[in-house]
């Protein structure tokens, strides 16, 4: 009886160990699978279309004859919108993080943190919808444009969406600065602001870089809101008040119409590979900064 019990424990132990190991393997397998499937479909494009024209082609006309799959306008579209968003989001986000972590009284801090977390929880489609009905008309009015569906609207919207990421990572970086640094500065007679400016910010600089990188990662991958309010014109952007189309929006907007197995379909997967690599690189850099912080 006791012997049986032990056998049973051994069997359970053996089986569970294998099951758990399998789950670990599955999780890594998906990374590999994701990349394989993107590659498999994306690289099929190059059987019929030159990689050079894909990467450096200046026009994206998927349904003209012959079709053109130059990714440059889309890439630049993503860059313009992302840069705009980061330029807005980083100063505001860092400022807000300092205020929340160092200046605000405790009761206010909790409320502000709650609001930022709430913002993070709102789905991007909802923010896109609100942007469409409120922000877009405002941009049109203020800048006297023929349409409010522009890179600028997208940048403002995305800045807003990147805010929670930037604020929370920045806040972590600030709270990670040892208390002795603060005490030291204040003991020397510095004002709190001098302490923040001269001691905290330099000490938290890796954190700021990580926040910026992850903010970029968040923004460049955003799809729905961007698709709804940037106007979706696949042209090389010359001004921030023009409509643009990002890489993500192109995939989302055109995959529905692309015929499975067509050049167009493969080209959209090609964009997917690009996005995957770009975000991987960004996150990798960010985790490098986060590690250095510790």
């Amino acid at each position: 009886m006791n012997f049986l019990k032990h056998r049973w424990n051994d069997i359970v132990e053996y089986v569970m160990e294998k099951v758990i190991f399998l789950a670990g393997i599955i999780s890594i397998a998906f990374v590999v699978l994701i990349f394989i499937f993107l590659l498999k479909e994306g690289l099929s494009l190059f059987k019929t279309y030159s990689p050079f024209s894909f990467l450096f082609g200046l026009s994206w006309y998927p349904i003209s004859h012959p079709p053109k799959f130059g990714v440059v306008p889309l890439f630049l579209g993503s860059i313009v919108v992302t840069l705009g968003a980061i330029l807005i989001a980083v100063p505001l986000g860092v400022g807000a993080a300092i205020y929340i972590a160092e200046v605000a009284p405790r009761w206010l801090r909790e409320i502000l943190k709650g609001l930022v977390e709430f913002l993070a929880a709102i789905p991007s489609i909802v923010l896109g919808f609100i942007g469409l009905v409120t922000l877009v008309p405002i941009v049109k009015e203020v800048f006297g444009l023929p349409t409010g569906l522009t890179a600028l609207s997208g940048a403002i919207m995305l800045a807003f969406m990147a805010m929670p990421t930037i604020v929370s990572i920045m806040e972590d970086a600030l709270t990670a600065v040892p208390e002795s640094y603060r005490a030291g500065a204040v003991a020397l007679g510095a004002t709190k602001w001098q302490m923040i400016w001269r001691v905290l910010l330099p000490a938290a600089s890796s954190g700021i870089l990580a926040a910026i990188m992850l903010g970029i990662g968040r923004v460049i991958g955003e799809t729905m809101a961007v698709m709804m309010i940037t106007g979706n014109a696949a042209r090389i952007p010359t001004s921030i008040t023009q409509p643009v189309r990002t890489m993500t929006a192109t995939i989302a907007a055109e995959m529905g119409e692309a015929v499975q197995g067509s050049e167009h379909y493969f080209a959209l997967f090609g964009i997917g590979i690009l996005l995957f690599c770009i975000t991987f690189l960004i996150n990798f850099t960010a985790s490098f900064f986060i590690k250095r912080k510790r």
Binding site: G221, T223, L268, F276, T279, I282
Partner: peptide, 12 residues
């Protein structure tokens, strides 16, 4: 890094 891959890529 997977946590940072854009959701549209997961869609693909």
């Amino acid at each position: 890094n997977l946590a940072g891959v854009p959701s549209v890529v997961y869609g693909l």
